[in-house]
């Protein structure tokens, strides 16, 4: 039983972290067809924001709940800045945007390396996350449960926002049919900026969660961007449920493969699994049906 329960729980937590990282990516990619390769660096910004908040509010019990909204806003503002300065000029060239944001990511990484100590900074875990929970004989770290809860809250908030607010409706309209949305009087420019702010902000929240599980350093974003994109690709764009299922599946695959083999081999196997899956369903798990040829 233990052989099954440990990778199951670890994998779920890993999947939740991937989901947090992929949520914002799927939002911006789904809407604008733009792959933001600096998304991983926004995640890093969120993690460093958590560290900086801890320098001001030293009580770690309190600092993490404060850090979550701070990281959201800080990373979101960086995303907004990126959209306003660079990406807005490149909507006709999505593939080029990918490369430009690679450059932005490099610059942000290097800046973080010079501002913060190169070995990374410690983010203190709050006391209430130190414990473990006994599930069928396996001592499950509470911070993994926290990651899952955080992902759940983010998904719920995002989907409620998309479903019930007028901004959400406009975003969905823009995703479905940009031209028609524009004709109907929606300012797609404003919507794009807002989407980019929210998407990048979600990366910041993911960064706080990542800082509680792994190290906080300038390289941390780079290791999330590829798995996060694979999750988005496997899940299909334009819908949240695909991203959720894919993130969980990839997380579980990573954990089980790591349990049976080694951590690095697990990554390779998970990558291959996603590529094979895309053979079967190139459009991902769930898709918004369109009549476009491409």
């Amino acid at each position: 039983m233990d052989a099954l329960i440990a990778p199951l729980l670890n994998g779920s937590a890993q999947g939740a972290l991937l989901l947090l990282a992929a949520l914002g990516l799927s939002l911006t990619f789904g809407q604008m067809g733009v792959i933001n390769m600096a998304h991983g660096e926004f995640l890093m910004i969120g993690a460093f924001a958590a560290y900086l908040v801890q320098q001001v509010i030293t009580a770690s019990d309190l600092s993490i709940p404060v850090a979550l909204p701070v990281a959201f806003v800080v990373a979101g503002l960086f995303g907004l800045l990126l959209e306003v300065t660079i990406i807005r000029w490149m909507y006709r060239r999505p593939l080029d945007t990918l490369l430009v944001t690679v450059g932005v990511g490099l610059i942000l990484q290097q800046a973080a390396l010079q501002i913060f100590p190169s070995q990374g900074v410690p983010v203190e875990k709050p006391g209430w996350l130190d414990g473990q929970m006994n599930i069928l004989g396996y001592n499950w770290p509470l911070r993994q449960l926290f990651t899952i809860l955080l992902a759940g809250v983010c998904v719920a908030a995002l989907s409620a926002w998309l479903k019930y607010t007028s901004f959400g409706r406009r975003i969905r309209a823009t995703v479905h049919n940009r031209d028609l949305a524009e004709t109907s009087g929606i300012s797609t420019r404003t919507i794009d900026r807002l989407t980019f702010f929210v998407g990048s902000g979600l990366a910041g929240v993911a960064g706080v969660a990542a800082s509680l599980i792994g190290g906080t350093n300038s390289q941390m974003g780079a290791q999330y961007i590829i798995p996060a994109f694979l999750v988005v690709a496997a899940g299909g764009i334009g819908q949240l449920k695909g991203t959720i299922v894919a993130a969980w599946a990839v997380g579980l695959a990573l954990a089980f493969f790591a349990y049976w083999t080694t951590g690095s081999l697990a990554q390779v196997l998970a990558f291959i699994l996603v590529i094979v899956f895309l053979q079967v369903r190139p459009q991902g798990l769930f898709t918004v049906r369109t009549r476009s040829l491409a």
Partner: peptide, 20 residues
């Protein structure tokens, strides 16, 4: 499979091979 999907899949392979 094309566009950004193709780009990221090839990049993922490079990451996977280097890790391996």
């Amino acid at each position: 499979v094309k566009g950004a999907y193709f780009a990221i899949l090839t990049q993922a392979l490079a990451v996977a091979l280097a890790t391996l």
